[in-house]
Simulated assay, not measured.
Amino acid sequence: MNVSALTPSELKLRLKTAGIYLQTGSFTTHLKTTIPSVAEGIGLLYADYPLVEQDCFADFHVNLTRPRNLRRWFKPQALFLFDGNTIFKPLPLDQAFPMLEWGLNWCVSTHVNHCLMIHAAVVEKGGFAAIMPAPPGSGKSTLCAALVNRGWRLLSDELALIRVSDGKLIPLPRPVSLKNESIEIIRRYEPNAIFSRKVADTIKGTVAHMKAPADSIARAAEAVQVAWVIFPKYQAGATACLETLPQSRAFMRVADNSFNYSLLGLQGFKAMTKLIDASLCYDFTYSKLDDAIEIFGALKPQAANNNHMYANEL
């Protein structure tokens, strides 16, 4: 059963009481909330996600709630609870849904260490994935949103999860986070895209989340081979340019964007080495999304891929 099988009132009631067990990729989150905007956001953006059996095992136990002090009425706030504990400082109540999304990213990035984790958007086409590591403001999420609205499969907007056992990438398709001008850029680029309401004055500016394509959600169990590591950068007025990047430099830059490369030790080094060896690496500058889509559409994987060596070398 998917979230969409519940009426809005049924969803709100279940979230207030026993909670729901929401499947996102290979992770199950036991999620509870009494905040209407969070329930509405889940109903809108997670409609196509499966619900698993109540009281099953959950990787994460999350509750979005309101403080019990005066903040419940005066400048109301939202709290993110993980295993019943407050993890972050409270945020204004109208930021509760973005807080949920940021909190779910935190759950994965701090508790999943059977994978090499990289802060990156990830998309796939034709059985091959492109990892796009980049700092905030680079246009990573804007490019990712455009690609998944032009035939690429969304694997993740924020986290590349590389399985150390075989180098395959584990999908984690969730809503795409967009901010400031990027929101209207993608609205114009794909008028049929579904968005949460815009929330202003967050630590990231004005934010909104775009619903993941239904096909990406349905294929969330399909791990995929990485073929490209591309460092995107939006530059106003620039001609789209894909420039080959030496693997040594790509290695260091991907390591800088990894959450747990050092924590994994030798296993992390071997996984990163295999990832870079198996990938074509590029810097990519763009200003027009249509030009970017055309260049990505022309990407070809390496003729020979080294991922089959994982079993012997890790």
Rank of each mutant, 00 (worst) to 15 (best):
L289C: 02
S258Q: 06
R253K: 15
F296T: 02
T285A: 06
A298T: 10
I293D: 01
L275R: 03
I293H: 02
S287D: 02
Q302G: 11
L242F: 07
A240V: 11
Y282L: 10
L242K: 04
M252S: 09
G265V: 12
V254A: 09
Y286D: 01
L264K: 07
N306M: 08
F251D: 01
Y310L: 08
C241R: 06
M272A: 06
P301W: 14
L275D: 03
M252A: 11
K274Q: 14
A255Y: 04
N260F: 05
T239E: 15
A236H: 10
G268N: 04
I276M: 11
C241N: 14
S262M: 11
D277A: 13
K300M: 10
L280N: 02
R253E: 13
F269V: 10
A271Q: 03
L280Y: 03
S258N: 09
T273G: 08
A240N: 05
P301F: 15
I295L: 15
F296C: 05
P301Q: 13
Y310F: 15
L275S: 05
A292N: 00
G237H: 08
A271D: 02
C241F: 14
A255P: 00
S287F: 03
A238K: 13
E294Q: 14
K300E: 13
M252Y: 11
F269A: 10
Y286P: 02
Y310C: 06
L245H: 04
L245F: 05
G265C: 11
G297W: 13
L245A: 07
Y282Q: 08
R249S: 14
T285E: 09
D283G: 00
Y261T: 01
M272N: 03
A278D: 14
L264G: 04
M309G: 01
A240T: 13
L266Y: 05
F251V: 02
Y286K: 02
Y282W: 09
Y261Q: 07
A278P: 00
T239Y: 12
A236W: 06
T244A: 15
A303I: 05
G237F: 06
Y286F: 15
S258I: 05
A303V: 09
A238Q: 12
D283T: 00
Y282D: 05
M272V: 06
C241L: 14
K270T: 09
L266S: 09
L242W: 04
T244E: 15
L264P: 01
F296P: 01
L264E: 01
N306K: 08
D291M: 04
F251H: 04
A240I: 07
N257V: 00
A236F: 08
A304T: 12
A240D: 04
A271K: 03
Y261V: 04
K270Y: 08
F269H: 12
A298N: 15
E294A: 14
L266K: 07
